[in-house]
Design a protein around this nucleic acid. Structure first.
Length: 826
DNA sequence: GGATAGCTGTTACC
DNA sequence: ACCGGTAACAGCTATCC
């Protein structure tokens, strides 16, 4: 049989002691197909130098006899081959040791204690990784495949019969097909329950949305009105059965939830156990399986054959740093990505809900799934390209952090370089690495506070990756000592050396950057979502690879390379600043890879020409580009001291577009009132070039605050709880607010954004935490606190630029004195 | 007992 | 535990006189 096929989900099973890959995907006619295949399973033994061929033969002989009997498996070494390979860039002779079961590779490695063997590697990769590398049968690419149909066969224990797929094929040949479109079938789901703690309440309803299919299953019936999309069941147990039935009927490639690893799926599992309902969601009738990630992290829920996606996790790793949303709630994220939001509905306890409340509740529940599906569809190009670029299945890349994804990318590309993979660090090694001394980071220029006109900003494109590539900084090029033609870099207390010959890490990174450039160029010519996603995938991987080398969990951990990169970065930015200033410009600020400077009457053409000249002298792939020309910019002093504050500035470009960095305006743990006032003042001053209008604006707001006319919503302070309540040494206001919430039996856990406001108390209290009230608690806001701790701090440094001491006038009891003073000064 | 340096904690920038 | 260091700042806490 011959069909076009796209692999989506990978997993494996054991049959007669061997591992077989089981790949679920679709044919081009939309049929669900299961592919069974096998691959070589092996590890590497790196030999010591200068072994005689006789000696090597005898080792091969010895290794060939290794047998391992564990957990009822009889695994043996099948064959041993001698190869010329590379390990960390060095030529080595290595034995490729083939085994029958990948799970026993570790045990085989333990038996390779011969003194002629220097290192054992490649035994700590997952089966799927082994398989994809070995067979080059990569996720989410189209293949023309041929093989034997197993539908009614008894082979592999009759897998073709019991698996719920249209066709089951034992793979024989594959051929990659380029440029064929993919349209995955996704089903979004969302549950509502009367208690937030997993399994402690009842599931009231489940919504399911896929294409035109929209359904809410519930046992909470209304008396009269039943919307079309609602389906009644008798009780919670039947609700769960119905859910399984629908998932099986729709048979999606992806089952998508929002925070579903941490809430929906575990909740469903807990309730199903309670009612003895079997959740046969897997294509082999298996139930979802949960595995724990890191301690404190949420678990991951896996369903065989259907890819369970918790879209929140992917958003967190791939997007959150580029997003405007202050929380990653479904509501905010949907607003930003979809321009849609959750249905307005105040959840009440079921016991006090009325007929119309229930109807609203159904709609609310349904819409959450609509949004979740919308997010999946919006982010699908990115999931697709991440998976393709990295070479691992979507299930994994959507959950793994960027560092793990960088590593997967490396592992999948090692073969081109003949490299044997480095091993994962042991726990002991990780402990050592975590306690290493920090290395010095990037350079930040000390700005002079003020309002400036005509500013240009240059920045280095992909600074870290370009330094790593241009100077070849990696574990495989790090030398023990100085060598001929090596590069020496001072990293504080010592000097480290790197070989000039390009290593695989730098080569891979270079490829990422070049591909990114290519797709970005194509994107400009003809924009489309896939190209954009691909360009983004390459960019994110390239940027994360710098942090990767300094990360203690990395296989290719190399803090020397990170330290060298920061050292070189400081040199380059400082030299560039010097050159800019030598050319009659004046640098006013710089952070890591960007430089802001005054044009000093020079034209844009002159500046661009100057940029070209700077670029012509940069080594390797390093590149300086124009970020933009700006009409005005503002830098303020630090709260304490007269120096300019770093990482805080605001710019306005020629079109009036404003860019604000670091100010309270962009910090979510300040109340909206302070943020809005500051934002308004910054905008006004940047537009006008002076402070006059802002002063009267501030005066009005002060009046409003003193007259208690400010909405409570604008006074709420939001701070994230970063750990569990008991772990806090310092009891700050948000910790008190969280404790209050706990007393009211509101759900509180690490990661929550805690909301509170500061209220007046009868007695004069000294500590802020003694005045904390929850948003729905009655109370009068503390005028003094909001003026002195929120409003004044947000604006006083800005007015100080104009030598105005706003503080003393705001504190003035008589408002008209302030107004008079403003009039006099205008 | 008030001032203050220093520490804890959060959030931002790149 | 799941990418790094730099920096500002609030508010608590220990310590000083």
């Amino acid at each position: 049989m011959k069909i076009d096929f796209i692999p989506i989900d990978y997993d494996y099973f054991d049959f007669e002691g061997r591992n077989y890959a089981r790949i679920i995907g679709r044919s081009d006619s939309g049929k669900r197909v299961c592919i069974i295949d096998e691959c070589d399973v092996y590890l590497w033994a790196i030999l010591k130098n200068d072994l005689s061929s006789k000696k090597i033969d005898s080792i091969i002989d010895e290794i060939s006899k290794i047998k391992v009997d564990v957990k009822g498996r009889h695994t043996k070494v099948e064959k041993v081959e001698l190869h010329n390979k590379k390990f960390l860039g060095k030529e080595v002779k290595a034995l490729k040791i083939f085994a029958t079961n990948y799970k026993d590779l570790h045990d085989i490695a333990d038996k390779l204690g011969m003194k002629e063997i220097e290192k054992r590697r490649g035994y700590d990769l997952g089966f799927t990784t082994h398989y994809i590398i070995g067979k080059k049968f990569e996720p989410l690419n189209w293949y023309e495949i041929s093989g034997e149909v197993l539908d009614n066969s008894e082979e592999f224990g009759g897998i073709g019969k019991y698996l719920d797929v249209d066709i089951c094929i034992k793979l024989e040949n594959i051929k990659k097909i380029e440029d064929k479109k993919i349209k995955p079938k996704a089903l979004a789901y969302d549950i509502e329950s009367d208690e937030i703690k997993i399994g402690e309440g009842e599931i009231l309803m489940i919504s399911l949305v896929s294409g035109d299919f929209r359904k809410v299953i519930t046992w909470k019936k209304t008396k009269k009105t039943k919307p079309d999309f609602v389906e009644y069941v008798e009780d919670e147990a039947e609700l769960l059965e119905k859910f399984v039935e629908y998932v099986r009927k729709i048979s999606p490639d992806f089952l998508v939830g929002y925070f579903s690893d941490g809430f929906d799926l575990p909740y469903i599992k807990a309730r199903a156990e309670k009612h003895n309902v079997r959740l046969s969601l897997g294509l082999d009738d298996s139930q979802p399986r949960f595995s724990r990630g890191a301690v404190g992290e949420t678990q991951t829920g896996k369903i065989k054959g259907i890819v369970h996606i918790d879209i929140l996790k992917f958003i967190r790793t791939a997007y959150s740093q580029y997003m405007q949303s202050e929380t990653l709630s479904l509501n905010e994220v949907s607003k930003e990505f979809l321009g849609d939001k959750k249905k307005e509905f105040k959840i009440k306890h079921p016991s006090i809900m009325e007929e119309k409340d229930w109807v609203n509740y159904y709609e609310y529940n349904l819409h959450d799934s609509v949004l979740t599906l919308g997010l999946f569809e919006k982010l699908w190009p990115d999931l697709l390209e991440f998976s393709r670029v990295i070479g691992e299945p979507v299930f994994d890349i959507s959950r793994n952090g960027m560092s793990k994804n960088v590593e997967s990318y490396i592992i999948h590309n090692l073969e081109k370089f003949g490299e044997i993979p480095e091993k994962r660090p042991s726990y002991g090694e990780i402990e050592l690495r975590r306690h290493r001394e920090k290395y010095t980071g990037a350079f930040v220029f000390q700005p002079n506070p003020g309002l400036y006109e005509d500013i240009a900003v240059f920045d280095f494109t992909s600074y870290w990756p370009s330094i790593i590539v241009s100077f070849n900084l990696s574990l495989s090029t790090l030398l023990n000592k100085k060598e001929k033609n090596s590069l020496g870099v001072d990293i504080g207390n010592k000097k480290v050396f790197f070989g000039k010959k390009s290593g695989f890490f730098a080569e891979m990174l270079k490829e990422l950057i070049e591909k990114r450039k290519k797709f970005k160029k194509e994107l400009k010519k003809k924009p489309d979502a896939i190209k954009n996603a691909r360009s983004n995938a390459f960019k994110l991987l390239a940027n994360a690879s710098y942090g990767y080398q300094g990360f203690f969990g990395a296989r290719y951990y190399c803090p020397e390379a990170s330290a060298a990169a920061t050292s070189i970065s400081r040199d380059f930015i400082k030299k560039t600043i010097e050159k800019i200033d030598e050319d009659r410009y004046k640098t006013i600020y710089s952070d890591t890879d960007s430089i802001a400077f005054l044009m000093n009457k020079k034209t844009e053409e002159q500046t661009l020409k100057f940029l070209k000249k700077l670029n012509s002298k940069l080594p390797g792939i390093m590149e300086l580009e124009l970020e933009g020309f700006f009409k005005r910019g503002m830098w303020v002093t630090k709260r304490s001291g007269e120096f300019g504050a770093k990482k805080k500035y605001a710019l306005i470009d020629k079109k009036g577009k404003i860019k604000i960095r670091g100010f309270e305006t962009v910090r979510r743990n300040w109340c909206n009132l302070a943020r809005h006032i500051q934002n308004h003042v910054i905008k006004q001053i940047l537009e006008d070039g002076n402070e006059k209008k802002s002063l009267s604006y501030v005066s009005e707001i002060i009046k409003k605050i003193k007259e208690r006319k400010v909405d409570r919503d604008d006074l709420i302070i939001r701070t994230q709880l970063k750990k569990s309540l008991s772990e806090y040494k310092a009891i700050s206001p948000h910790v008190i607010a969280a404790k209050k919430m706990e007393e009211k039996e509101m759900p509180v856990s690490s990661g929550n954004l805690i909301e509170y406001y500061i209220a007046e108390t009868k007695e004069k209290k000294k500590l802020v935490r003694e005045k904390v009230k929850l948003p729905d608690e009655e109370g009068k806001y503390d005028i003094e606190y909001y003026l002195e701790r929120q409003i004044i701090p947000a604006i006083e440094n800005i007015f100080q630029i104009f030598k105005i001491d706003i503080n003393s006038f705001i504190k003035e009891k008589k408002q008209n004195r302030l107004d008079k003073w403003i009039q006099k000064n205008q």
